[in-house]
Computed example of a mutant assay.
Amino acid sequence: MSVALTPLSAAHREGVEMLWGDLRVIRCTNLPRPCGREEARARLEQLLSCERGLSAPVLFAVLAEGRFCGIAGCPPIRAEEEIFGFFYQLLPAFWGRGIGFAAAKMALERLEAAFPAAVVYADAAAENLASVKILESLGFSLRRVRPGAFCREGVCGDILDYMRSGGKRGEKK
């Protein structure tokens, strides 16, 4: 399946509303509940504002066969120090097809092209085995485990904190 990234913009609002409005998507995120239209719009605006002033886009819409299927990116934590976060989210209809890995890899490649010394942090709920596998396949190293740090509907699980530094070092093929 053909996967491409395009800079995320307000034009992707409807897709982001579907994404953040789906309980299955947000289940392993920091969103406490599915977003309605206005909340999704406000969150998208806030997300886009974090890349203003950067020399290159770091937030992307993920397209599969030309159709919106999710978002991926590396929002700055401290841009002046080239420290970024990392995330990707896909609509459930696109899960299990390798799109998440492809999108994650492309987002990191674009970040590294613009910011070669970037340090990138990511976390994953330990139960989200697909995301853990993607992070580790892309050369992220486990830094620490935060026991019980992720709670949803009265059930708590571990958060795994990862880091990747200095570009492509350590990337597994």
Rank of each mutant, 00 (worst) to 15 (best):
R13I: 12
V120R: 00
A72N: 08
V16D: 04
G166H: 09
R37Q: 13
E109L: 10
V58D: 01
V62D: 03
C156R: 10
R43V: 11
F115T: 04
G15C: 02
V120M: 06
E65D: 15
V155E: 14
Y121T: 13
A102H: 05
A103F: 07
Y88G: 03
F115M: 06
L59E: 07
C74Y: 02
F60T: 03
A4V: 04
R43N: 11
G70W: 07
A149L: 12
T29K: 01
E171R: 06
L111Y: 00
D161F: 09
S141F: 11
G170C: 07
Y121C: 13
E171A: 00
Y88M: 09
G15I: 01
L48Y: 03
L138V: 01
H12A: 07
L54E: 09
V3N: 00
G154S: 08
G166I: 00
D22W: 03
D161Q: 13
E81H: 15
V58K: 01
L48G: 01
S55E: 15
L160R: 06
P7F: 04
L31V: 00
E82L: 05
P76C: 13
C50L: 14
C69G: 04
E82F: 09
E81I: 10
C74A: 11
L8Y: 02
G166V: 00
V145Q: 12
V155G: 06
E81S: 15
K173Y: 00
A126F: 00
V155N: 07
A104W: 01
A79C: 07
L31E: 04
H12N: 12
E136S: 03
W95F: 08
M18Y: 01
T6L: 02
A11N: 12
R27E: 11
Q46L: 14
A42I: 10
E38G: 13
M106E: 15
V132G: 04
C151S: 15
M163K: 13
P116Q: 10
L160I: 04
A56F: 05
L142F: 00
P147T: 09
A4K: 12
A4T: 14
R143S: 10
F86V: 06
E45H: 09
E153G: 05
R13M: 10
G98M: 05
F94Q: 11
G167K: 05
L111N: 03
P76D: 09
G98L: 04
K172I: 00
A124T: 09
L90M: 10
P75S: 06
A114T: 06
R24A: 13
A11T: 11
R169N: 10
A102E: 12
A72L: 11
E45F: 07
F115V: 05
W95Y: 12
R146M: 15
G157R: 14
G85A: 15
E82Q: 15
E38S: 14
V62K: 01
R33N: 00
G85Y: 08
L19K: 06
G85F: 08
F101T: 12
E39S: 08
A126W: 04
R97Y: 09
I159E: 14
P116L: 09
E17C: 12
V16G: 04
S165W: 11
R144E: 14
F60H: 02
M106G: 01
G70S: 07
A124R: 05
